[in-house]
Nucleic acid binder design. Sequence first.
RNA 1: GCGGGUAUAGCUCAAUGGUAGAGCCCUGGCCUUCCAAGCCAGAAACGCGGGUUCGAUUCCCGCUACCCGCUCCA
Length: 488
Amino acid sequence: MPEKNELMEKVVSLCKRRGFIFPSSEIYGGIGGFWDYGPLGAELKRNVREAWWQDMVQGHDDTTPPPGMPSPYAMVGIETSIVMHPQVWKASGHYDLFQDLLIDCRRCKARFRADQLAASQCPEKPSKRPGEHTTCDLTPPREFNLMFKTYVGALVDPESEAYLRPETAQGMFVNFRNVLATARVKLPFGIAQIGKSFRNEIAPRYFTYRSREFEQMEIEFFCHPEESRLWYEYWRDRRFRWYVSLGLSEERLRLREHSPEELSHYSCGTADVEYAFPFLPEGEFGELEGIAHRGDFDLRSHMEGKLVRRGDELVVETGPDGKPRHPGSGKDLSYFDEETKGRLIPHVIEPSAGVDRSLLAFICEAYAEDAVPDESGVPQPRVVLKLHPRLAPVKAAVFPLIRRDGMPETALEIYRELKRVWNVAYDDRGSIGRRYRRQDESGTPFCITVDGQTQEDGTVTVRDRDTTVQERVPIVELMAYLRERLAM
RNA sequence: GCGGGUAUAGCUCAAUGGUAGAGCCCUGGCCUUCCAAGCCAGAAACGCGGGUUCGAUUCCCGCUACCCGCUCCA
């Protein structure tokens, strides 16, 4: 296998060459932090999303919990708008955190909030404030706005300002009552969503890893406060195993609990699922998903208004007039518990995963270089994407060994039959060896070849991507053969 | 956002102050009975904008993108 740095270059090159990922707007020079998915990338990405939706939502059995699940629960999916009422982001706390005026020191590289400059220290001379030490070289206050701003309606004025969502999560919180009222769910239950989010990252970096437009797969799981710790641990462990089940090796994966200092002001427990991406220094990991215990922070925020921590409590932040600085909806988002006949504000466990980051990890993990013996038995190098069959963009390719003697006709019949169920490819160009290699680079798990024997006994060869081993399979059994091995 | 580097074909690279070559890939044809075969033909590039110059892909400046450090990451 190639060395780490080299590996990433090869992965990026393969992504471009085979049509997985392109720079956005490339013919105009590209635009930083945005990427396009090509024909194979779009299929791969759909498969990542669908694997998640299948495993977390559609395939969830709310009547019989498997071992390890604290209790049965319901799971429903929603899809909410990217542009939401601006008050959502004020109550959630995003607005204030994103609107900072910041001052940088060109010398010591420190960064200060403009409104807190008087309370800050110069890192090189802690007895003085930034700018007071002789070597300080401060920039003017500059506005950092990490949320994309837009205008609703054609009229451009401050009244019509809105934002592209920086996370999908708020869509679930603001629809908590709607789901409760319509989906016949009771605690505990989860709301799931997959969708695009946008953050004006200061430094997009590492290929698609830190993009300004990205896609999230998020669950907001609502439960009784006294059960929330149990559910937090359940989701943390389950989400880790999900990545393993789709092929990420446990050696490159890590489940990391945040230290108390690292926790957000509202969180009483957060763990990240992290992957040792090849572009990171040895020993460092990058986040794929965060599983956060958010307590009742979100529902309370949307009831009462933006919350801040005071001691051990979260209280509504007030303005100079004593009223909430950023009021909530004022709607009652509490839950009526039929058993205790009392109302409570559910706690929330939030497994929040990145589609693009997972996809990148799956590709990095799958990239392999090995050797396959040629017709003389001499090992020849090959590049192969050993993607999990559920993720592979193309599930199988069908070839006629040669372009005559009825082989193309038979191969096309098989191709059309399989095409009704899976994304399959047909290829009759070039030597058979080259066609196998092409599919290897695309990550296609199986290649089906019609040869001279097919006419005699109705069998074809099926070649396994990872082992290159072939076996003869009757055409009539192909569908069942693939169904079993594609695990779908 | 700061500092450094890079930018030539889809990919990997080369050459050049007088408008660019190769390998792989790709397309068409011939040939081909299982792991990158061969032959013929073909398509395809100097990131963008200025400046210097008779002439710039080449030298200079700016921009953009990517890479490497730092910073940031609700």
